[in-house]
Design a binder for these strands. Structure first.
Lengths: 136, 136
DNA sequence: CTTGACCTTACAGCCACTGGAAGGTTTACA
DNA sequence: TGTAAACCTTCCAGTGGCTGTAAGGTCAAG
């Protein structure tokens, strides 16, 4: 199987697969007589594994750890679980941060007339003092 | 006012202020006899404006547009409002994406025993078929 | 007069790719 | 057999928004 078919099956792009090989995230693919990379089912599975790990938010360092766990027959499932829970907490923080940002945006939009005139609560809000600076 | 004081007042780092000048996001600061950048209240306000815009999620291209609007006395507030609403929608999409990722992680963690043994629902989930591939 | 805290520029690195150039190979079809 | 399209290869550069570091100049306090 050539790289583009492996890409289709794994959910990664051919570029990304080469990149993962480059940074030693996956072992170098075997090569055909023409120098083309060749992938068997096992290699594609590993690529698919990486695609799914990336999809749920793991960075490449974490993907490396997950891959190590997957390869390790004497692993302890608590290690995988810890990575997952830690990532979930990270996502939680990020979500809360984005929600807070969105609330500020919504509040701004509500106070702005949004018409043809120059008066603009949004630009005033951005220019003005921080909302952290409360009046005592 | 030197750059580090401007940094303290604006909420940006000195590095970031130099960078913003570098990419022409803000006008070059005036220089003292020693070559040091000098900032007056107006310049600091603009930097503060940028810090706040970044905080609520605008990228530098959008910051540029917001800054243009702020400078433009014949602006129309609907333009600012549109930028804000658009950004809010982008944040909404991103939040939903992160929530979906987090749900997958939570489901994985729940199915995993997380003990000393090698059996691991998480690694199985990552190895197995996509959840998009349902059984008919 | 030294110490330490500033300031300057310039360049490298981060993350996780993506795009493009320049060239080799394979496949389908006339 | 020719050729065009669709593959494949490597290598280098660019993305965004900074941050780190090096090598040097300046300034205020003691």
């Amino acid at each position: 199987m050539n790289i583009s078919e492996a890409a289709r099956h794994s959910g990664l792009s051919a570029k990304t697969i080469r990149y993962y090989e480059d940074i030693d995230l996956v072992a170098p693919a075997t090569r055909g007589a023409n120098g083309y990379r060749q992938y068997d089912a096992k290699a594609v599975e590993e690529l698919h594994f990486l695609a799914r790990a990336r999809e749920v938010g793991f960075d490449l360092t974490e993907c490396r750890q997950l891959l190590e766990l997957q390869r390790d027959h004497s692993r302890q499932s608590r290690h995988a679980r810890q990575l997952v829970l830690q990532k979930s907490e990270q996502l939680q923080s990020r979500i809360e941060q984005l929600l807070a940002m969105q609330q500020v945006l919504q509040a701004m939009a509500q106070r702005c007339r949004g018409d043809e005139g120059p008066e603009c609560a949004i630009l005033e809000d951005l220019s003005g003092p921080s909302e952290a600076e409360g009046k005592p």
